[in-house]
Computed example of a mutant assay.
Amino acid sequence: MRFPLDGVSLDDPILEGPSLRPHHGGDPDALVVLLHGYGADGRDLIDIGKAWADLLPGAAFVSPHAPDPCEGAPMGRQWFPLTFRDPHELTRGTEGAAPILREFLAAELAKYDLPPERLALVGFSQGAMMALKIATTAVVAPAAVVSYSGMWAEAAGGRGDMVLPARPPVLLVHGTEDEVVPAEALFASARGLAEAGVPLEWHLSPGLGHGIDDAGLAHGGAFLAEFLGRRRT
């Protein structure tokens, strides 16, 4: 089964961004999509693919630029606007940005002839919100999700009791000193996802602010290798 491709032309890019071919040099047996945060772009995360190349030698990596110019950082991109005044803007924002990202994922999987079970989503901050939104509302659950310094928007919006169509394994990673998305967001997300039946793990990096450290990177790579390590037959 594939993600729906209605209206998608593989000749017309939906989103664009840097990518890496598999470390082993052959055709990809998995796809890891890296979703950047508010005010950045796809170049911000693509080097994670190089760091994980030995762990995931058969995986292709792609880090798309978000669709819209960032209102708060003119040189960057955003998945959706942020005002920090509307308590529902995260749920509305992830919902509104989800269709174009779903189309991009469908096109990328089709390009490599991969099923959604060989997809992993990795997001940072706003990109982590998108990764969790897409993964838990998919027709077919992806292999795994790694969320860095983000949150599950539904839990933040008081909708943690919703029934989820998909329950992929999730790793939540956060810094204890995150000044943008407080570490409490990890615990709220973990509670909501666990109550919804999502298998999850979490890691707190002591003293880390809004970023990714070596420990978090190692945990994320090992987590994905656990679920993507087997080559497709």
Results as ranks from 00 to 15, higher is better:
24 H>Q: 14
155 A>R: 01
186 L>S: 04
14 I>C: 00
167 R>W: 00
228 L>P: 04
150 G>T: 01
113 D>K: 14
85 R>Y: 08
216 G>C: 05
27 D>T: 15
203 H>C: 05
117 E>P: 00
152 W>E: 01
119 L>V: 11
221 G>N: 03
48 I>N: 00
98 A>Y: 07
150 G>N: 01
223 F>M: 03
47 D>I: 00
27 D>N: 14
141 A>I: 02
93 G>W: 02
225 A>V: 04
225 A>I: 00
125 S>Y: 10
199 P>E: 09
109 L>I: 10
125 S>C: 13
141 A>R: 12
6 D>C: 00
196 A>S: 06
34 L>Y: 10
193 L>K: 06
10 L>V: 12
223 F>P: 04
23 H>K: 12
224 L>M: 01
150 G>K: 04
124 F>I: 09
144 A>Y: 03
211 G>F: 12
148 Y>T: 05
184 E>P: 00
13 P>K: 04
214 D>E: 15
230 R>C: 07
159 R>N: 10
3 F>M: 13
36 H>Q: 11
206 P>F: 06
121 L>I: 09
137 T>S: 14
14 I>M: 01
216 G>F: 03
62 V>N: 00
213 D>L: 12
89 E>Y: 09
190 A>H: 06
205 S>N: 06
157 G>Q: 01
217 L>D: 01
143 A>W: 04
55 L>D: 12
155 A>E: 04
115 P>T: 14
176 T>V: 07
111 K>S: 14
170 V>L: 03
127 G>L: 08
175 G>D: 08
116 P>R: 08
184 E>S: 15
72 G>R: 15
208 L>M: 14
137 T>A: 09
137 T>P: 00
183 A>R: 10
77 R>K: 13
187 F>M: 12
90 L>C: 02
130 M>T: 03
111 K>F: 11
206 P>T: 08
129 M>R: 02
55 L>C: 01
